[in-house]
Design a protein around this nucleic acid. Structure first.
Lengths: 119, 119
DNA sequence: CAGCATCCCTTAAGATACTG
DNA sequence: CAGTATCTTAAGGGATGCTG
């Protein structure tokens, strides 16, 4: 990023911002949600549960989640190949926060205020 | 719940994703946090409290927050101009979720797993 | 003081095609 | 089956300078 190397430690230390760096991508939460509900899913099952995701995004997001300690990947060396994904303990501990956020989101949605971006 | 009806209703209906559309920008949370703590702040006060933000991003983020019903803007027509921002009720109701997220983020941070992106 | 306008750059995300 | 590689597009974010 073109960040100015000046002085500030702007939002680097905000834990919420940190959390969003882990799960703020477009697909991270849908993936984690599916995994937390099912505890273990194969790649294709996951893909089928998440409407609209492409292989690219699913594989890439899973990799990031794994790197960040939120998903465990187990590969069975058989033919045909089989890989299973599960949520880590850390991911499961995220659920209360997600539920709070979800409650709030649902509330906000109901008031049917349109979501506006910059014009 | 959450079984695929047909196919494409991807994440449009996920309340968490909806919430993140409202507050997922880089500066929304720092801004809301400052406002919720102080209840009312002028533009420059806000800017000073949020290290690293530019006029562009502050003004733009405030506008979006206002459009989405999370921030109230009151403009006093005097010279020099004075504008005050406050959190709406909806923004205040977000606090529990932010606190949960923050707790989790702090936990995650401590395990000092590096935050990885795509390579 | 409280902002907009403009231009630019980086990153996220998606389409498409191919492989062990 | 479970992914990669490559390319393209879209959006977010930022620097700088100007205005009511």
């Amino acid at each position: 990023m073109g960040n100015s190397q000046k002085d500030e430690a702007p939002l680097a230390d905000c834990p919420v911002t940190y959390a969003l760096r882990l799960i703020g991508g477009k697909w991270q939460i849908p993936i984690l949600w599916a995994l937390c509900q099912n505890r273990v899913l194969r790649y294709q099952e996951l893909k089928r549960k998440i409407a609209g995701i492409t292989n690219m995004m699913l594989a890439q997001s899973l990799k990031e989640l794994e790197s960040n300690g939120l998903v465990t990947r187990i590969q069975y060396t058989e033919i045909p190949p089989r890989v299973e994904y599960s949520p880590t303990e850390a991911a499961l501990r995220l659920l209360p926060a997600l539920e709070e956020l979800g409650k709030w989101g649902a509330e906000m949605k109901q008031r049917s205020l349109p979501v506006e971006g910059p014009q």
